[in-house]
Nucleic acid binder design. Sequence first.
DNA 1: CTACGTAATGTTTACGTAAACATCAGCTCG
DNA 2: CGAGCTGATGTTTACGTAAACATTACGTAG
Lengths: 340, 340
Amino acid sequence: MSRPKAARVSMADVARLAGVSSQTVSRVANGHSSVVGSTRQQVLAAMKELDYRPNSAARALKSGQFRTIGVILFTLSSTGNSRTLEAIADHAALQGYAITLIPVAMPTQDSVLGAFTRLGELAVDGVIVIMEVHLLDAATVTLPPNVQVVVVDSDAGDRYTVVDTDQADGARQAVAHLLELGHRTVWHVTGPEESFASQRRAQAWRDTLTAAGRQAPPALHGDWSAASGYRAGLALADEPGCTAVFVSNDQMALGVLRALHERGRAVPADVSVVGFDDIPDAGSFIPPLTTVHQDFAEVGRRCVDGILRQIERGETAHGTALVPTRLVVRDSTAPPPADR
Amino acid sequence: MSRPKAARVSMADVARLAGVSSQTVSRVANGHSSVVGSTRQQVLAAMKELDYRPNSAARALKSGQFRTIGVILFTLSSTGNSRTLEAIADHAALQGYAITLIPVAMPTQDSVLGAFTRLGELAVDGVIVIMEVHLLDAATVTLPPNVQVVVVDSDAGDRYTVVDTDQADGARQAVAHLLELGHRTVWHVTGPEESFASQRRAQAWRDTLTAAGRQAPPALHGDWSAASGYRAGLALADEPGCTAVFVSNDQMALGVLRALHERGRAVPADVSVVGFDDIPDAGSFIPPLTTVHQDFAEVGRRCVDGILRQIERGETAHGTALVPTRLVVRDSTAPPPADR
DNA sequence: CTACGTAATGTTTACGTAAACATCAGCTCG
DNA sequence: CGAGCTGATGTTTACGTAAACATTACGTAG
């Protein structure tokens, strides 16, 4: 505080100008109990004249609430994360809560970690964790006590409230769509192993095939990036029996499309491709991608509602709430070549 | 607070257990002045035993600093915004600052607005604005006094510290690259009019053509989305003289590629396309996109450094600092058809 | 007409921290 | 050998707010 920063206006200042006690100012500010009209007007006028702004630090100190929700995540580079975050921020703002971002370094590179092992002293009433909880444990971040938690992309329903997209049903729809088109089986490109979402999608892919009496080919592994999808796509292009692929997210699907294109395998004539997420760009891929739509806005809304229910009403409803998905059929899927 | 929340541990509690005064605890906590080794050890032991966590509200009230930076933006859906945000969050965490997200509704839909006209009472030492300032003005958000501001994507260098990518030079490199390949002129797809970045890129595109003695064709207008790029691409496909396009971001370029593909105009054989941003997926487009690389990490770092310089050292260095760009040449550009 | 209830407002206090000031013991220097 | 200094620690106070309690004025029921 090197500079003499323009004097902060406090309730006392407003009270003095309005000729009332500071408690009355507080009452007006909070719309509490009874303040007669004329007094209220005077106070409001004084507030306006002085450009009074409540001091949130003092308020938090007194009330023990920060009206702030922390969001913990590894990265914003995945479309899903950033869209969930945006939905959370929008909905929280609507409820009068602010969002504090808590980036955590990957467990491998704990350089940055120290910075927010201090998480404990964070001014936050609750935390939304957008990642598999086991990873959080591994990251040696200690969640402070008395802080409510809601988790996305995890199976920790027994320990926390979990909000998630219905990964399994989405994957089932994708595979079923391909089978209905007449494909004998469906190949699969997974996300990173740590991702619970990826695990769920892979499991449902396998289960759906099995339930239909089909043999599941070996899964190929990616890391959510388009580049990893491209590598998987090259491998798939060399599988002559491969006529249909379910890719665990749209970005990897983009890479798969490029690999197939470069290897002269036409989509959807030779190979059908289905993605997951329905990112805004998916409709502009070549060809426009058939994919499973995730309702990120709804996920965000439920996260915020869930955490607020815990914070404001003390309800601790563990368990998992699933947000439904729906298949968006575009031009990357068609019956297998043999059928035509 | 419906529940009896486990009693908060304060400095006084730690002091009692350690048999010292609370001021000594404060000194240990802040590494301040002199505390003899043995005393320090006792205090640290007591802290650990009680799982003491400093109360940031009280600290903020006392010090007048929140160790928090607010980030104001319209949306996270543009890759640029979310990557800049991520870079800001990472770098801020490194410096021991937290990030508070402040989403602002578009000026058109002021429904959400009320929620954060309360911005004034926000617990924030400084604000980074990721949008054209005029839009911020239009959004009727009043920035509180005594809050430092750094701006991205704006020309308000006279009022604020502005950090930005060197848009003009990036656009110049893109156009120069196409001219060097032998194209007679270069078409252009802009971003939304309000975007300062888009304006700068368009201006530099025009200037570079003029400087080379070429005629600039009419610009086509998009809104950063792939869908808008697709529409522009359809129009371009109908221009027989069009052999080269500079698109103002990669997402729109994706749409342009699809439109050209659907109309049978081969890229890069018939038409060359250059994008802007170098999003992670750009290398997986069909064909891999030649584009202007933006160093978002550097932008984020400079934003944080700039705001911290203002907050902690009171330096108010207005003006604009430009982060250099570089052209990444991939497979979407080639000499014009006539040359071959 | 008095006693008591109620609405409106004022006064006191505590939240947890850290700056400012106070105290105290031990040590150095003239 | 004592004045004065230094380093270690304790005590007081203020930050801005809001809950809890206190006071005042006024109206009404008995």
